[in-house]
Design a protein around this nucleic acid. Structure first.
Lengths: 342, 342
DNA sequence: ACATATTACGCAACCGATTGCGTAATAATA
DNA sequence: TATTATTACGCAATCGGTTGCGTAATATGT
């Protein structure tokens, strides 16, 4: 119905210049209170809406933050995104979310698109595949804040937000050892990614601390797709010395394994003790309840959001350019317990 | 380092007008093939990047789709968003995602913000609270495509994408009846929302078809927060005639209930048969496995994305302005079976 | 060879808000 | 009262593409 109304229309009606309108609407100090009120109230009643396209062009910023994640639909990632969105929303930033679907090429394309879209900042959780980081150069050249969360790498001046995966891997492994495990299998994700290599390193450290030898067959690298649990099962069955404990790099895989093992008559935790990672909702449902490591997705998202916002608002203290490590927490349930007591 | 380079810079170097640059880069037919090639290749090598702010302003469109959902972090919603993102991405649209957190006020604010941001279309899944729809008027006035998915209402010319909740509710209920249930409780969400009222109506229809009387205590309205399972338990215990079947409007609540009932010594499905809704991953994990209704989130997202894109591209056949009902599917597992056989 | 059609591009207005600089009007100071 | 400082606003350039209209150059038709 009504045509779009601009500050020029307002200016004409109110007998002031468009500049005054713009300043009044932005609460600029050099406009008197009375005209400010007059302008603002008329703008309201007339149904004026700012044209962000024009504002963005002249200010060269968009109040938009870009996010690239591997997949939207995982409990962890959607929790993280939820936290990010909450903070962004509170600070009047829009969130453009895109998925790399674990493909480096898509990640590169998304980065280009988001750059072209003029995002004021970019938050990334890396795809499994991603091996080089040239697609982020342009952001760094243009001084567009760039932050990594969860699946990170360490580029100069790029904050990272994640938990201490190495320590968490250590804790999980040591827990199994303290429950009596002597021959532990670690089912890992792609070791190229920090989150998995760190967990693996924690795993090795724990073995080392407790003078348990690490053999290549104690590690099984996967894509963590529970559909492919059979590969893991084969590895377990073909072990020279049967495993008495398994540390999974995520819960989904652990759950799939528990179900398969139970079906085959293996007792958990009596025969094999199992611990997962992430504290996925299913870990509390599966019988026996799955021990795991809590990975606070929502809180991580909130912190990541706050960090990027404070960058954008210019509160760049030295700290905020550093890594933030969130506290993880070992959650011991029955799947890993020596004496199956509550 | 390098300043931003514009089409004016290119024009100067290549001795053509900015208009020609623009047309060449947009593959406009009135530019000869040879100059097109010259311009495009030079633009490439010079590192030129379009300024979308300017392009958006002059074209008055942004290649951006806005999405408002109640919560990002639910298995269903993140699956739907994943599907939407995939389609949008394939068609070079950006997705701005925001959460209403079940608050009507936030939904209104988000709608305003997205409008101001100049989204080319809006996709909405309504908050529990939302009772009036004025915040969408501006979209309809400006002919900005508006689509509802899952939690919908029927505004003129607004496509809706969802499953046939009434039929699904009917199927779930009839299944319980056919398994021998005579006194079924329906634990519903807020009945203001279509998805829940439809399921409830299906519930009633099934009772009616099988000549089972419906009493007010056969319905229990909740916010479906599994934390508040105690209210449901109270209702169950205080029933005059004890229930022999429960139809939950979502799986999370059903699972919480199963766990509580089992703890109290109630046998499932022998004493009470239970069916959920959504086919949440936990439904396959819980013991006994939870019967449920499959609600294909990802597919729904894909369809919603395709529908909105086809609107935007102008392929507006009459069909695409209509509702789309996806196929649901009853998934029978052990939690509802008369004879507990596989 | 002359009229007409087509091709290939340039001109300049336009999208709508922002902002540095300048200045008239009013207030404060000497 | 004359002078300086403040206040409150207007002017006009700017952000960087897009696009309707006009036209010179070349091609086509008779």
């Amino acid at each position: 119905m009504d045509k779009k109304i601009t500050i020029y229309d307002l200016a004409k009606v109110l007998n002031v210049s468009p500049a005054t309108i713009s300043r009044a609407l932005n609460d600029h100090p050099s406009i008197s209170f009375s005209t400010k009120k007059r302008i603002v109230s008329y703008a309201q009643s007339s149904g004026y809406r700012i044209n962000k396209f024009a504002a963005n062009l002249s200010k060269q910023k968009s109040n938009t933050i870009g996010v690239i994640v591997p997949k939207l639909n995982s409990p962890f990632m959607s929790a993280a995104l939820s936290g990010i969105e909450k903070i962004a929303n509170e600070h009047n930033y829009n969130l453009i979310i895109s998925q790399s679907l674990e493909s480096e090429q898509k990640e590169k394309l998304n980065a280009k698109t988001l750059y072209d879209s003029g995002v004021d900042a970019l938050m990334v959780s890396l795809a499994h595949e991603t091996a080089n980081y040239e697609h982020f150069d342009i952001f760094r050249e243009q001084k567009i804040p760039l932050l990594f969360f969860d699946r990170v790498d360490y580029l100069p001046n790029c904050p990272t937000i994640l938990i201490d995966n190495k320590q968490a891997g250590f804790d999980a492994t040591e827990h199994l050892i303290l429950q009596g495990c002597k021959n532990i299998l670690h089912v890992s994700g792609y070791l190229k990614r920090n989150v998995y290599s760190d967990r693996f390193n924690g795993f090795k450290d724990a073995l080392h601390k407790h003078k348990i030898e690490f053999n290549p067959y104690n590690l099984f690298e996967t894509d963590l797709d529970p559909q492919k649990i059979d590969f893991v099962m084969d590895h377990i069955k073909n072990a020279k010395e049967s495993f008495d404990g398994i540390f999974f790099a995520n819960d989904a895989m652990a759950v799939a394994c528990i179900q398969t093992l139970l079906k085959e008559g293996v007792r958990i935790p009596e025969d094999i003790k199992i611990i997962g990672f992430n504290n996925n909702p299913v870990s509390e449902i599966i019988q026996p309840n799955l021990s795991t490591v809590n990975y606070p997705g929502y809180e991580l998202g909130v912190l990541a959001g706050q960090s990027i916002i404070s960058h954008l608002k210019g509160n760049i203290n030295i700290q905020s350019a550093e890594s933030i490590l969130l506290k993880h927490k070992l959650i011991v349930r029955t799947s890993s317990l020596k004496n199956n007591v509550k």
